[in-house]
Amino acid sequence: MKKTTIADVAQYANVSNSTVSQYLNKRYEYMSVETRKKIEEAIEALQYRPNLMARSLKQKSTFTIGIIVANIIHDFSTKIINALEAEFDKEGFHMIVCNSADNPKKEKKHIETLLEKQVDGLIVFPTGENKNLYVRLHQQAIPIVFIDRFIEGVDIPAVLLDNFSAMNTAVETFRKHPLAIITTSLALPITPRVERLEGFRQALRNKNMLVDERYIKNGEPVEMEEIFDQLFALEQPPKGIIAANDRIFQELMIYIKKRNLRVPNDLQVIAIDDVPYANFLTPSITTLKQPILPMAQKSASLLFAKIKKEQIADEQKLYRFKPIVIHRDSTN
């Protein structure tokens, strides 16, 4: 069976070959809606499929972005991937998503694999343990943008939450004290974990409150019950807890139910990231929401500027976004 070509589509739509080519490359500036519709109908009728390899060779682009997520089970990860996909689709780009599971070796392997596939750029949630690799990639002018995290001493732009502002907002929101914060393990220098703990300390100092390290905890999710037991065994158990991510929040809610604690009477709760079920729980849980869409838009625009070798007007190392407070019943 003869393969359908651009010439076949052009003849069917009664337009030139170059007009079809412009349509396929999403260059619609001087193309009427009627012409676009005719080409679309011709492509559908003839079941035309572009030769992506030939297109890539001609334009020196695979129209593919590689994304390396730290841990795809996090609510923030899935939401930012969804928002990024919409931004890339506008430019005719596709995504390949890899999950490093916060494992530096997997992260390095994914980078090597994606570069072998000749992706046009990378968006990465870095583990913090592959600094030399990222320095080398930056020197090679590989387009890369970090999300959620950054690596000190690596000149790659990062888009992330303003974790210090988030902790200040959280501490200001609580009505009862003492306060505690729990995050996942600090075995790796992962930016949001480190910054949220330090931001919590700063927020307490700003209010002239005592910084007691017994109320500042980190660990793996499987260790959370033991960590919560330690907190509630203190002579003054916490009256408010910040769950620094959705994994910790989930473990905290399980513990609260198991111990028959009343929220907010016995314990006030604030969770980082507005997970869907926070609003459905009884009582509903106050959250600090990350502005997903603006963060995705900034990450995509930075990456496309690097791919196209354009000058970035507001070029800087870190692009921090303020959290959005969703006030609910758990802090009343």
Rank of each mutant, 00 (worst) to 15 (best):
M1P: 12
V9L: 06
A10R: 09
Y12E: 13
N14I: 07
S16T: 15
N17Y: 10
S21Q: 06
Y30I: 14
Y30K: 15
M31Q: 07
S32N: 05
R36I: 00
R36T: 03
E40V: 03
E41G: 04
E44L: 11
Q47W: 01
L52Y: 13
A54E: 06
L57D: 08
K58P: 03
K60D: 06
F63N: 11
T64S: 15
I67L: 14
A70H: 07
A70S: 13
I72F: 05
F76R: 00
N82W: 12
F88T: 00
K90P: 00
F93L: 06
C98A: 08
A101Q: 14
A101E: 15
F125H: 11
F125D: 12
F125I: 07
G128L: 02
K131D: 08
L133G: 04
Y134L: 08
L137K: 10
H138F: 07
Q140C: 03
P143K: 02
I147Y: 06
D148S: 08
F150S: 07
S165D: 14
R175V: 10
K176E: 13
P178V: 03
T184I: 12
A187T: 14
E198H: 11
F200Y: 15
R201L: 09
A203G: 07
K207T: 06
Y215Q: 02
Y215N: 07
K217P: 05
N218W: 07
G219T: 01
E220S: 09
P221M: 01
E226S: 13
D229R: 04
Q230N: 14
Q230S: 12
E235G: 01
K239E: 08
G240T: 02
N245E: 03
I256P: 02
K257S: 11
V263N: 05
N265A: 12
N265K: 14
D266N: 09
V269R: 01
P276S: 11
Y277S: 10
Y277K: 02
Y277R: 10
A278C: 15
L293Y: 15
K298T: 10
L302P: 01
F304E: 02
I307K: 02
K308Y: 10
A313S: 11
K317I: 12
I324N: 09
R328T: 04
R328P: 01
T331I: 14
